[in-house]
Amino acid sequence: MKIPALLAMLATTLVLANPAQATPDADAAQKLAKDSGCMKCHGIDKSKKGPSFQKTSAKYKGKTAEGEGKLRDLITKTTKVKLDDGSEEEHGAVKSKDDAQIKNLVSWILAQ
């Protein structure tokens, strides 16, 4: 097999295997967000105590893997966050260790 054909086959395999291309399961993502307490502080299109998911999406969308990684860290690790009013509080972690569920939630947030 010639190198250009091999490279074309490899590129096709990578594109088809990339789960980031898949449409997120909105119902599953919203259920995980609700079960994890995210909806207490975040609305989809309206800010509450924390920014809306639309604002979060605008902040991280288009930053490819770097943005996805930062958002993933934010939702999976317990960290201190600064709120709009200047106060700080501990940001809870999503209540799942399932990689597929977490990827779906990240994709759904970025799709807002």
Rank of each mutant, 00 (worst) to 15 (best):
M1A: 12
P4N: 01
A5T: 05
A5H: 09
L6W: 02
L6P: 04
L6M: 09
A8C: 07
M9D: 09
M9G: 15
L10G: 09
L10R: 04
A11L: 15
V15I: 14
L16C: 08
N18I: 01
P19A: 05
A20K: 13
Q21H: 12
A22L: 11
T23N: 14
T23D: 12
T23Q: 15
P24F: 11
A29V: 11
Q30H: 09
A33C: 04
A33L: 15
D35G: 06
G37D: 02
G37V: 04
G37Q: 05
M39A: 12
K40D: 05
C41H: 07
H42S: 03
H42E: 09
G43C: 08
G43W: 07
I44K: 15
I44E: 14
I44V: 15
D45S: 14
K46I: 12
K46A: 14
P51G: 01
S52C: 01
F53C: 04
F53G: 03
T56K: 04
S57F: 10
A58M: 01
K61M: 11
K63W: 06
E68N: 08
E68H: 11
E68A: 13
G69T: 06
G69D: 07
K70L: 13
K70D: 05
L74P: 05
I75D: 02
T76M: 03
K77I: 03
T78E: 12
K80A: 00
K82Q: 10
L83H: 03
D85T: 02
G86S: 01
G86L: 06
S87V: 05
E88C: 09
H91I: 07
G92L: 08
A93N: 00
A93W: 00
V94E: 00
S96L: 08
D98N: 13
A100R: 03
A100P: 03
I102G: 01
K103N: 14
S107Q: 13
W108R: 11
W108H: 11
I109S: 05
L110N: 11
A111I: 14
Q112R: 15
Q112S: 15
